[in-house]
Every structure is written in C-alpha cells, then in structure tokens.
C-alpha cells in the first residue's frame, strides 16, 4: 500500500479534506436535472420548502387535447436513492383518466418498469404531459375510463369535460379542475 500512497501523492493536486455537511449525491443530481428543465408555458413547478429540492409540486395546464383548460397538480417525492430509483409521482386531484386511478397513482412506463438512471426529471415531466394529450386505453389504471375511451371517443370526451367540472361520472364524483 506504500506504493499506492506515492501514486496518490502524484495524482491529487490539492484538495481539502473533510467538508462538513456534504451535499448528497441525490441532491447534486436533482440540482442538475432542475437546471436542465425547460418547461413550456403549460407547466410549472413549485417548491413548498425551497431548501428541499427533493419534494415539489408540478402543475400541468394542458392547452390542447381532451383535458384542455384543466389544471392538474402532481406531488414529486424523490428519495436519496435517486437516480437509482425513479421519483414517486402522485396526482393530487381525483380525476377521470384511463392511466391515473382515483388514488392518484399514475401508470407511466418510465415511472416504474422502464425507469433507468440515465433518464431525468425532464423525461418524467414530458411523459406526464403526454398522458393528458394522448390518454392511452391499452394501459388502463382506471378501467372504467379506459373502457369508455375504447368504446366511444365522443362519450369519453363528454365524461372528461363533465368530470373536470366537478360532476360525477358513473357514480364517482371527481374534483373540479377547471382553471
């Protein structure tokens, strides 16, 4: 190991040892992801505690598609295992959507089975936005909504509008999400 130490001497220029309170690896990565985040006018993030960048709220206000005119918010909870583990994302409103269930769980491949550490927060956020533009009946989490979409796009569209106003659809009352 003596040899090792002499190599070390040559390599390390001049680094100080032992900073107190180091920034964690997950924080470093999230900071990088946030700086690369380029959200359009339809989305914004909000940090209830600005010192805690691992927990924030994303607001999506689609300006086209079936969910046009609504305001949807998502809780993002990132743990110290990020990016080994994906962020946990949950819709805060009770909405009528084939890929989001009544508890707010979201079926998006990159949030679960297809997550990879090379993906970043931008990819997740774009993925969420896409769900509002193209709800997907073949990956249903809310089976009733998915069936409706499969059977008749017109009926589904009416149900979406009605649910967004805060009315009930097939006996289930939804949160009002109109801006």
């Amino acid at each position: 190991m003596l040899k090792l130490w002499s190599m070390q001497q040559q390599q390390a220029a001049s680094t100080p040892g032992g900073a107190k309170k180091r920034v964690t690896a997950a924080q470093l990565r999230v900071q990088k992801d946030l700086s690369e985040l380029a959200l359009g006018p339809t989305m914004k993030t909000e940090f209830p505690n600005p010192d805690d960048i691992l927990n924030f709220i994303l607001t999506i206000e689609p300006d086209e598609g079936l969910y046009n005119g609504g305001r949807f918010t998502f809780d993002f909870a990132i743990n110290q295992n990020f990016p080994h583990e994906p962020p946990k994302v949950r819709c805060r409103e009770k909405i009528y959507h084939p890929n989001i269930n009544l508890e707010g769980n979201v079926c998006l491949n990159i949030l679960r089975e297809d997550w990879k550490p090379v993906l970043n927060l931008h990819a997740v956020i774009v993925g969420l936005q896409f769900l509002f533009l193209e709800p997907n009946a073949s990956d249903p989490l809310n089976k009733i909504a998915a069936e409706d979409l499969k059977n008749s796009r017109e009926t589904f569209k009416r149900n979406v509008r009605s649910s967004m106003m805060g009315n009930s659809v097939k006996g289930e009352t939804f949160d009002r999400v109109m801006k």
């Binding site: 080994h84 979201v106 679960r112 089975e113 997550w115 550490p117 990956d139 989490l141």
Partner: peptide
C-alpha cells in the same frame, strides 16, 4: 434496478 411490473 429492481425489475417492476407495469402498474396497469
């Protein structure tokens, strides 16, 4: 990463 089954 731990293999996961799609939520749907």
């Amino acid at each position: 990463p731990r293999p996961a089954v799609p939520l749907c």
